[in-house]
């Protein structure tokens, strides 16, 4: 008892020190909050700038024209500001590169998680990830100077600038996004599920396709959507290889332009500040932002819906 009282008195000796400590803790919490806020504020800032300049754009061009006109020719007369050809180009590259990346990426993820020995995995995985580290400008030149000439040997009517070779290059670029994230999702599938399937006489392929892939489905969908958003946002490859001809076409052999491709093109040229061409970059940027946002929301929705189906 006497001891406790003595200790109590000891504790009361340093109230000022404890106050200082509390203040320090509060400051650290504030600093950490600030660190988190930086990225939030940056995002907000970007969206605000985009919005302000987009509003400028729509004071000169009607939203109706922007959404329905089937020509995009802001750099020469007669000027047209229809986003559809650019959306079409982006869509073509997104779908085309997904057609390349999903089978190859999923295939390598299945190979790595279900077939490869540890030793092979340790070699192949980093090699695959190198693909993601190659600068996109290199991919762009590779597409233009290697893929296109190669394709032109077999496809006669392939234009020099064409969507196809951009799709292939972008597709290869996003393979690691598909494979790496899908493989993570597949490796996380418990071993006990695989054993359950093997014990029923399943082959390796059946285990992979009927147990592991479905169990990892939400992770795989997330991987694919992330990869496709990278394709949608990719600019250098499409600017170099796909040309700069905004066009409403689904023919990958022709020259096209994507939203990002247009932004690159205009940023390089000498477009006067405050002109409608200048503001059109922001309107296109805003459209791009909304497309990617919609994809992310869609991904979340798919993931949540699927998980509900599995859980409850």
């Amino acid at each position: 008892m006497a001891n406790a009282v003595a200790e109590g008195r000891d504790l009361r000796v340093s109230p000022r020190w404890r106050d200082a400590q509390k203040r320090r803790e509060r400051w650290i919490a504030r600093l950490l909050l600030l660190a988190g806020l930086v990225s939030v504020l940056t995002t907000v800032g970007i969206v605000l700038t985009l919005t302000v300049d987009t509003v400028q754009f729509f004071q000169q061009v009607s939203l109706w024209e922007f959404l329905t006109d089937d020509k995009w020719t802001p750099l020469f007369t007669p000027k047209h500001f229809g986003i559809l050809p650019l959306l079409n180009g982006t869509f073509l590259v997104a779908v085309g590169s997904a057609l390349v990346a999903v089978p190859l990426g999923l295939g390598s993820a299945i190979y790595l998680s279900e077939y490869a020995s540890d030793r092979v995995r340790r070699v192949v995985k980093p090699l695959l990830e190198i693909l993601a580290g190659i600068p996109t400008v290199v991919y762009g030149y590779f597409a233009l100077t290697y893929i296109t000439p190669l394709l032109r040997r077999y496809i006669e009517n392939l234009e020099v600038f064409n969507a196809l070779s951009a799709c292939i290059a972008v597709g290869v670029m996003i393979i690691p996004t598909v494979s790496s994230l899908s493989e993570d999702a597949m490796v996380a599938v418990p071993r006990s599920l695989r054993e359950a399937a093997y014990a029923l006489g399943a082959t390796r392929l059946e285990v992979a396709l009927k147990v592991v892939v479905p169990a990892a489905f939400s992770g795989i969908v997330a991987a694919i959507i992330l990869a496709v958003s990278r394709a949608v946002g990719e600019s250098m490859i499409v600017a170099l290889a796909a040309g700069s001809t905004p066009k409403l076409t689904l023919n990958p052999l022709e020259s096209i332009q994507t939203m990002t491709g247009f932004i690159v093109q205009v940023s390089q040229g000498d477009v006067g500040y405050g002109t409608v061409e200048y503001y059109s970059i922001y309107a296109v940027g805003m459209a791009l932002f909304l497309v990617t946002l919609a994809m992310n929301l869609f991904a979340r929705w798919v993931v949540r819906r699927y998980q509900e189906g599995v859980r409850a």
């Binding site: 006990s192 054993e195 359950a196 399937a197 014990a199 006489g201 009927k210 169990a215």
Partner: peptide, 26 residues
């Protein structure tokens, strides 16, 4: 030769699909 494991390990599928899995693949 069938096997039942120490910890229950149903597939994250429906009850029906769990039972139907073996017959289907075979």
């Amino acid at each position: 030769i069938g096997m039942v494991f120490q910890k229950p390990n149903p597939f994250p599928k429906s009850i029906f699909e769990n039972v139907a899995f073996g017959p289907r693949i075979n």
